[in-house]
């Protein structure tokens, strides 16, 4: 991914910055500028998610996407944040420990890098929330 394209969403990737529609109350992560329900009548504001949620479904990837080869096997999940929206993220740690309904919290990790010379992509992953 190109540098400006990644940088543009740095706040969302680092800090789970999303949006919230004041009109209908729905929260969006990844952020949306247009409310799915209210469309042009929506009142979108910035919202920073708490970073806690639970696993809706997951898989353990054995054949990785390009750039993720050395991480296999890794758990990839759809996580429902406590505020409502769902996102796709890796669950770090032992894939065997992941199950539907697992409580998770966000952590700061490397998402990947553009080879050895290019930029390092940092962002949010999730970890079992044992607290």
């Amino acid at each position: 991914m190109s540098v400006p394209r990644f940088w543009r969403n740095l706040g969302s990737r680092y800090n789970l910055e999303g949006t919230h529609c004041k009109e209908c109350g729905e929260y969006y992560y990844p952020p949306r500028d247009t409310c799915v329900n209210c469309r042009r009548l929506g009142k979108i504001e910035a919202y920073k998610f708490k970073g806690t949620g639970e696993v809706v479904t997951f898989t353990v990837i054995h054949t990785a996407a390009e750039g993720f080869e050395e991480q296999t096997p890794y758990a990839l999940a759809i996580i429902k944040l406590d505020e409502g929206p769902c996102l796709t993220s890796q669950i770090v740690g032992d894939p065997e420990k992941v199950h539907i309904g697992l409580r998770v919290r966000s952590v700061f990790r490397k998402l990947g890098s553009d080879g050895e010379r290019g930029m390092i992509y940092y962002g949010t992953k999730f970890i079992p929330d044992e607290a």
């Binding site: 050395e70 770090v92 700061f108 990790r109 490397k110 390092i120 940092y122 992953k125």
Partner: peptide, 16 residues
Amino acid sequence: PALDEDAATIAVEAAR
């Protein structure tokens, strides 16, 4: 470190 950890991620986790 984990495969996806480096000095920056560790610094961020400590700072947070």
